[in-house]
């Protein structure tokens, strides 16, 4: 069974890269263009894992996680934060927002896939 990933990023380029990388690794990918779109897609897509950018218009990545964790649907889904920041402050923030993990941009394809495989049990 291939896991279904919801990738939320306002950058077309990053969306394209994520889609290419994840589809190559055998995942099904749905993309969303900002936080609001992401949360809306999350309601209908049976995502096994969510990857979200932090800095986005309309609703940022932490807002997305908050909505997911507070929502009624699939609230315990693993959520990875995709960010250019790193360091303890990020970890702290991601943690408090309820992220499962984080990936630092630019991401390494293999590392990304291996983390996702681990978090989805595939």
């Amino acid at each position: 069974m291939s896991a279904h990933i919801l990738a939320i990023d306002d950058s077309r380029t990053i969306r394209a890269l994520l889609t290419a990388t994840l589809e190559k690794a055998g995942f099904a990918v749905t993309t969303a263009v900002d936080g609001v779109d992401g949360v809306a897609k999350f309601q209908e897509a049976q995502a096994d894992l969510v990857i979200t950018d932090v800095n986005m218009p309309n609703k940022d990545g932490f807002g997305v996680i908050n909505d997911i964790r507070q929502g009624q649907v699939n609230r315990a889904v693993p959520v990875l934060v995709l960010t250019t920041e790193s360091g303890a402050a990020l970890k702290d923030r991601a943690r408090r927002a309820g992220a499962t993990g984080w990936i630092v941009k630019p991401f390494d394809d293999e590392a990304l896939v291996s983390v996702i495989k681990r978090l989805t049990g595939t």
Binding site: F62, G63, N66, R96, G98
Partner: peptide, 11 residues
């Protein structure tokens, strides 16, 4: 539970 006040300002 995730703290509501953590909801980012932009949301």
């Amino acid at each position: 539970v995730p703290e509501p006040d953590l909801e980012p300002a932009q949301a």
